[in-house]
């Protein structure tokens, strides 16, 4: 009765090393609920990222939620299926690419006389300084979200030995 509520990882820890951590969990309920939950978690994560400048949340929190959805796939569906949906190379790629884009976005205002991340110095015709700050903060949140997503999934893959 109790083991029906465990994910595969908890059961693997509970029963010793009788099964591989990267095997899919054998209950169909876990698979169906996981496949239904993951898109909703990701949509809410994108909401948290893109509304980070109005409401609680932001790039880091939304990125953690995205990583949680991917790690839920890893735990429930096993190595083969979850690697088809999110390959292990993407973790490091997203982390590095997100960091690079965020750094580039922050450095751009330096060429126009502003400070780091001081977006309203960037001369884009037709956009007032308030709009520049708005879009700059939004882009920075999106890049931070992707880099946190990639970094946390890469940490999980490195810990569980799945990224080899």
């Amino acid at each position: 009765m109790r083991r029906d509520f465990d994910t595969g990882l908890v059961e693997a820890v509970r029963t010793g090393t009788s099964r591989e951590m990267s095997d899919p969990y054998e209950s169909i309920f876990v698979h169906v609920v996981t496949k239904a939950m993951v898109p909703m978690i990701q949509i809410f994560a994108f909401y948290v990222i893109t509304h980070g400048h109005y409401s609680p949340g932001g790039g880091f929190q939304g990125g953690v939620m995205l990583a949680a959805s991917t790690i839920l796939l890893r735990l429930a569906l096993g190595r083969d299926e979850s690697f088809r949906r999110f390959p292990p190379d993407w973790g490091a790629l997203l982390a590095g690419g997100g960091t690079l884009l965020f750094a580039i976005l922050g450095v751009i205002p330096l060429f126009f006389g502003g400070n780091f991340l001081d977006y309203h110095y960037v001369p884009i015709p037709g956009v007032d300084p308030v709009g520049l700050r708005y879009w700059g903060i939004l882009l920075a949140e999106v890049f931070i979200g992707f880099l946190v997503w990639g970094a946390l999934v890469a940490i999980y893959d490195a810990l569980s030995g799945g990224g080899r």
Binding site: L9, A12, L75, Y156
Partner: peptide
């Protein structure tokens, strides 16, 4: 996430 990471190390 911390719980998952600790579980993976516990494995």
């Amino acid at each position: 996430l911390t719980g998952v990471f600790l579980l993976v190390s516990l494995f």
